[in-house]
């Protein structure tokens, strides 16, 4: 039963870490918004989808027939990541402005905001399926079909660990994702705006009395979360080269799970939870077959929460808490 896992331990580990890094990036958005607003932003999966769409659009506009190399490749990748990141960041801020702020200003309950989030999520999916994909991507009547994205970089094997090949795109995704998270961690812990975010998440009332502009903090939180999701979307397109209007659904659930697993509201927990979930999924699939992947992953989630109800790192790690 465990032969398969032991025989291919490194390939499962590497794939798990790469996917886990993407989960972690998306999980940041859930965890930051929860930290500041105590709101589960269910439309965050669509913010991720917008990131994949924007970067897919960039690749499509390049009209590639062959993968890029050299400086063209570096430029292409940067453009993809920047456009993906900013499209998602912009959408996330717009989402906050339209779907959440009016409710917050009127003192609506958190349940109302949750419904608003679900509504926004459906709205964005249908917007892409019915309007944007058929028109902007010139795929009439195929709004709900999967879209293939041209290959932007050759997927050469860089080196091997224990018989498992590590491809250049996998390494790039992992390094970029971890880099983004380290950067964010530093921003939250060392800058003035970061202090504002931490203060708001600990006690919004007191933070306001201390002169923190809550509206601004909320805007920045959505911007950062959106940016991370957009970068994750670009990296996702780089690895899998497909997207569709509902691509965020499953990944969003996984990322949310990663956030809860690591301790929701906890930045470092999001990363840890993402990597942990990616690995568990793959190990579970190795032992029980890929059909059982999600069953294993969520059983582990339940087990972890039984013994550590606030997640692996806990909710109260004040330093890293956003």
């Amino acid at each position: 039963m465990f032969d398969n896992l032991l025989g291919s331990f490194w390939p499962y580990t590497i794939d798990g870490l790469v996917l886990g890094a993407i989960y972690g990036l998306v999980a940041l958005g859930y965890t930051m918004v929860y930290g500041v607003l105590r709101l589960i932003n269910f439309a965050h999966s669509e913010i991720f989808m917008i990131g994949t769409m924007a970067s897919a659009f960039v690749v499509m506009s390049m009209g590639l027939t062959h993968p890029l190399t050299g400086f063209a490749l570096v430029g292409g990748l940067l453009l993809m990541i920047l456009v993906g990141g900013f499209a998602s960041a912009g959408s996330a801020m717009l989402l906050e402005r339209i779907a959440y702020r009016p409710l917050r200003k009127r003192g609506a309950s958190r349940l109302a905001a949750l419904i608003s989030a679900i509504g926004a999520s459906l709205f964005l999916q249908e917007l892409f399926a019915l309007v944007i994909i058929p028109h902007a991507f010139n795929r009439p009547e195929q709004g709900r079909n999967q879209m293939g994205v041209a290959r932007i970089m050759d997927k050469d094997v860089l080196f091997s660990i224990g018989g498992a090949d590590v491809r250049v795109d996998q390494l790039l995704i992992f390094v970029a994702a971890i880099g983004m998270m380290v950067l964010l961690d530093q921003v939250v812990n060392r800058t003035k705006i970061g202090r504002g975010i931490r203060a708001t998440s600990q006690d919004p009332q007191t933070a306001m009395l201390m002169g923190v502009d809550i509206d601004k903090i909320v805007r920045v939180t959505f911007l950062i979360g959106g940016l991370m999701a957009g970068v994750a979307g670009a990296l996702f397109v780089l690895q899998f080269e497909v997207t569709k209007f509902s691509i965020g659904f499953l990944l969003g659930i996984k990322a949310f799970t990663a956030a809860v697993l690591g301790g929701i509201g906890n930045l470092r927990g999001a990363l840890l939870g993402g990597l942990f979930l990616g690995l568990i999924e793959n190990y579970g699939a190795a032992v029980f077959g890929s059909g059982w992947k999600d069953v294993i992953a969520f059983s582990v989630l339940v087990l972890v929460l039984m013994f550590r109800p606030t997640g692996i790192l806990g909710e109260s790690l004040q330093q890293a808490r956003a």
């Binding site: 390939p11 499962y12 794939d15 996917l19 899998f240 497909v242 659904f249 990944l251 793959n282 077959g289």
Partner: peptide
């Protein structure tokens, strides 16, 4: 509905 089939591929 999933996108990542790496575990199947490894197997």
């Amino acid at each position: 509905n999933a996108t990542d089939y790496s575990s199947t591929v490894t197997k």
